[in-house]
């Protein structure tokens, strides 16, 4: 009966072309990446604990980082690693970086390069040493309990580690004042069991959202000093360090996409109900 009637806005909305949705999703992801909105982020205690520890250590403390993930977890863990590393550099701590996952080396190298641009005076072999990747997993962890320079005779750039100024003060796990590990799997269990528990080094974990549940028991057992979980944790850390970057914008993107879908669904349902009511009314009138 209403063939000629032009479809109303409500009807057109309900039959929206999927490409409009695709465009909106793409925009909802891209715009916050370009212009981080910094949607309020609630900082959880387990993230704050990591921040506070690094913040309160006296400048020049020894900090160890282990990069145990690969590009598959890059969107979540890379921003987190960069943010924590930036904090460490900013506070003037000494930093040693190890890698247990072969494909994590380049991610760590890239992060260092990017931070060098921000902190030109941050020098290799003095302020930090990038030990690179070593085969062996748990064995490597046990071995760094003895010595970095023997476990990693050469660093990532091929220089001999033995004579480095930083290595003189910081040559084994036990000499670390704090450790942060970035984990996409279970190498963190090894670090805790074979490394930090043995040498009594406080440790925090930056982990992907998927593996986070398996690390929370360590937090309860006080074997971990803090946990930065997934993109959300990374965003919280960026908030604490007051440098909103990749994770903040990525979290904004997440929130935007979720909000977009949520609003679209709610509107669609309201409109659909309106349409039903409208039809019912018209049917009554027609009768």
């Amino acid at each position: 009966m209403d063939k000629e009637r032009k479809p109303s806005f409500v009807e057109r909305f309900l039959q929206m072309d999927r490409r409009i949705i695709y465009t909106l999703v793409a925009l909802a992801v891209a715009i916050p990446l370009l212009f981080p909105m910094g949607l309020p982020i609630k900082v959880t205690p387990e993230v704050r604990s990591v921040y506070d520890t690094i913040e309160n250590l006296p400048a020049g403390s020894n900090i160890l980082m282990s990069v145990d993930f690969d590009p598959a977890s890059q969107p979540e863990l890379y921003p987190m690693m960069k943010s924590v590393m930036r904090h460490v550099v900013r506070k003037g701590h000494k930093l040693a970086i190890t890698v247990l996952w072969p494909n994590g080396v380049n991610l760590a190298a890239q992060c260092i390069e990017e931070l060098k641009l921000e902190f030109p005076e941050w020098t290799n072999t003095v302020d930090y040493v990038f030990l690179g990747y070593q085969v062996g997993g748990a064995i490597v962890i046990m071995s760094v309990g003895n010595s970095f320079s023997e476990t990693f005779p050469k660093d990532y750039y091929g220089q001999s580690t033995a004579g480095m100024p930083i290595i003189k003060e910081f040559n084994k796990l036990g000499e670390a004042d704090y450790m942060v590990m970035f984990e996409a799997g279970n190498s963190g269990d090894w670090w805790i069991v074979y490394g930090t528990e043995v040498h009594d080094v406080p440790v925090a974990g930056g982990v992907t959202a998927v593996v986070a549940p398996q690390y929370y028991p360590y937090l309860q057992a006080k074997q971990l000093n803090g946990i930065i979980g997934g993109l959300k944790g990374a965003a919280e850390y960026e908030k604490l360090t007051e440098v909103p970057a990749l994770a903040t914008s990525a979290m904004d993107s997440q929130s935007m996409v979720h909000a977009l879908i949520f609003v679209a669904i709610v509107l669609a349902n309201i409109f659909a109900l309106m349409l039903v009511a409208e039809k019912r009314r018209r049917a009554q009138e027609g009768r």
Binding site: V25, A26, I261, A264, A268, N269
Partner: peptide, 16 residues
């Protein structure tokens, strides 16, 4: 999949 999941949600999540 991010696109598809959004459009699938939009069309399927209706209280019919």
């Amino acid at each position: 999949l991010a696109f598809f999941i959004a459009s699938a949600a939009f069309r399927a999540f209706r209280a019919r």
